[in-house]
Simulated assay, not measured.
Amino acid sequence: MVVLFVADPQLIGIQDEMGFPVGSIARWDSDRYLRSSFSRAYQHARPDVIVFLGDLLDEGSKASKSEYLSYVERFNNIFYETKFCKRVIIPGDNDIGGEGADLRTPFKVARFERHFEAIEGVENYLFVDFIKLDIRDHNVEGRRQVFRRMSSSLTAPIRIVINHESLITRRKENIYPVLQLAQPSVVVSAHWHWSQVYSCATCLSDNADLNHWPLKARDMKNTHGFVEVDVSQTVSLDEIMVPTCSYRMGVPHMGYGVAVINKSGQMKYAVLWLPSRYPLLYVYIVVLIIAVILLCLEFIFSSCGSQKRGYR
């Protein structure tokens, strides 16, 4: 089973961008980059499931009704291939609020669910349950109650918890009660825009120490090819952090995550790294400036030549 993970595309909005024509050009170029890169990733991976890890829209939390509808239309056009396979979506703070002064509200959540899908629940495909718990630091008890309600929907031997924000990098006392109850095979997150794999040998053990995660971090930015992840363990836990796929996030390494999962409990994970965009844009700007200069010089010289012929 092949899963393609898409993190933080953050389609550029209207309110925070410059006016016409700069803003229009920026949206066009960013959308074109996402459309082209996603299409190639899809053709390469041929996934059974595509998982979106939140922050689909840059201004989803504050968009007007007409703006939001235009963003949803752009999203569906960019990620057109999701029509042909199983799709799982969770929101990020840019979609429904929840970070800093940008408060999460029932209206924002309802709007997201109306145009995409429920922010909580279990999505099953073959031998994997994708668990959407929407875990945050301050809502542990609420998440435990949510999991108890959805536990009857868990039917697969492999459980993957998908969450926009990282879990096992947070305070253990805020996260452990939920993870210990859910017993995930692996956690997949996003939000930070870079690629990491965190391994924790005893994260799911019955450990009274609620102050310490024995974590080992692996930076994936220089890793090419697959890494092995054992999802059959009942005590250890790995969290995969998927990088952003948008060059507008300002990070040098963008990509899509891809996992190949066997029913036996073995999983291989890799990042499909994307080409840089800003260096090429700078080349475009330089070429444009040179072209404008040459056109100006040609106009000046041709005008001077015309004036000389007029004097004769």
Rank of each mutant, 00 (worst) to 15 (best):
V2S: 14
L4T: 15
F5I: 11
D8M: 05
I14E: 09
D16W: 03
E17K: 13
E17R: 13
M18T: 10
G19I: 06
F20M: 11
P21M: 02
V22A: 11
V22M: 06
A26F: 07
D29Q: 08
S30A: 09
L34E: 05
S39V: 06
A45T: 14
P47T: 05
I50F: 04
V51N: 12
F52L: 09
F52T: 11
F52V: 13
L56E: 08
D58Y: 06
D58M: 07
E59R: 10
S61N: 11
K62S: 13
A63Y: 01
A63M: 07
S66E: 08
V72C: 07
R74C: 02
N76H: 10
N76V: 06
N76E: 05
N77D: 07
Y80K: 15
R87T: 13
I90H: 09
P91C: 04
G97W: 03
G97D: 02
G97H: 03
G98S: 01
A101E: 01
A101N: 06
T105W: 04
F107Y: 02
F112S: 14
E113G: 14
E113Q: 12
E113K: 15
F116V: 12
E123F: 09
V128Y: 00
V128G: 00
F130A: 02
R136A: 11
D137S: 12
H138I: 08
N139R: 10
Q145N: 10
M150E: 03
S151V: 06
L154K: 14
T155H: 08
A156C: 03
I158C: 06
R159D: 04
R159G: 09
V161E: 03
I162H: 00
N163K: 10
H164I: 06
E165S: 13
E165H: 14
S166P: 14
L167P: 12
L167R: 14
R171D: 10
E173W: 07
V178L: 08
Q183N: 12
S185V: 09
S185L: 05
A190I: 07
W192P: 14
W194C: 10
V197N: 01
S199V: 04
C200P: 01
C203P: 00
C203W: 00
L204Y: 04
N207K: 12
N211Y: 08
W213M: 03
L215S: 14
M220G: 01
K221D: 05
G225M: 02
E228S: 12
V231S: 00
S232Q: 04
L237P: 00
D238K: 15
S246N: 05
R248I: 06
R248W: 12
G250H: 05
Y256T: 15
A259F: 00
I261Y: 01
N262F: 04
K263T: 08
L272T: 10
S276G: 12
R277L: 04
R277I: 05
R277N: 02
L281V: 14
Y282R: 15
V287A: 13
V292N: 08
V292Y: 01
V292R: 15
I293L: 14
L294K: 12
L294W: 03
F299T: 15
I300Q: 01
S302P: 10
S306Y: 01
